[in-house]
Amino acid sequence: MDPRGSVVDRRLEGVRRIIAVGGGKGGIGKSLLASTLALTLAEEGRRAGLLDLDLTGPSDHVVLGIDACPPREDFGVEPRLVHGIRFMSIVAFVGSRPTPLRGVDVSNALLELLAITRWGTLDVLVVDMPPGLGDAMLDAVRRIPRAEHLVVATGSRVVLETVRKHLQLLRRIEAPVVGLVENMSRGGSAAVRALADELEVPLLGVLPFDAELEEATGDVARLSRTSVVGAVRDLARGLHGRIRRVRGSAGSAASGS
């Protein structure tokens, strides 16, 4: 018997809310959105965490310009605080080496990471979901049933074909979906809006295509000033009422579970 699954909930019990950023399709901005959502939440004074669950193609450390984040060992491992974010990624353990993992290894590594990482008290943990509908995604959804899914799409038909399947799968397994976000937008796609309407998912934001983004990648101060992160900030504010503080601004104590 594998004992690790029995402690995952306990490791996350101090986390008020978990937002999983996914979409099924590769290269649509899941990592960009997950990283900058955590960043803007932290900037606004929320206790934010970021978990990069893309174990074979981790990217959040690149977006946020984090080059070393060795975890602190303390009754498990405690994620480092970087740019105000509790950050955990496979790169914390392996640096820039390749991680050639088969499905069973991905499942194992993901479970090990969830079983040993102590998140402490957080208002929100943002999870960067791996692409595809394979082992990595299925395990992430299964091991973190509380996660609310924020789904990224673009106006491309090629992308929407897969995003639709991603949403249908989430619905089939009754995973909560918090909303859809259009990324790399050149002015609001009718096709994304139609998909949101069809599947009765709120369209929570539209992030513009931003030619400056590449230059700003890895530099949080510059990132913060880009139009796309401005739109992420609006998106985060839209989630305000939903992402509450563990301790309200008036100092009223609320339990973290």
Binding site: V7, A115, I116
Partner: peptide
Amino acid sequence: MHELALAEAVVAAALE
């Protein structure tokens, strides 16, 4: 220590 986290998992699983 990381060993403690794993031991905790063993006890939690046994209790389940």
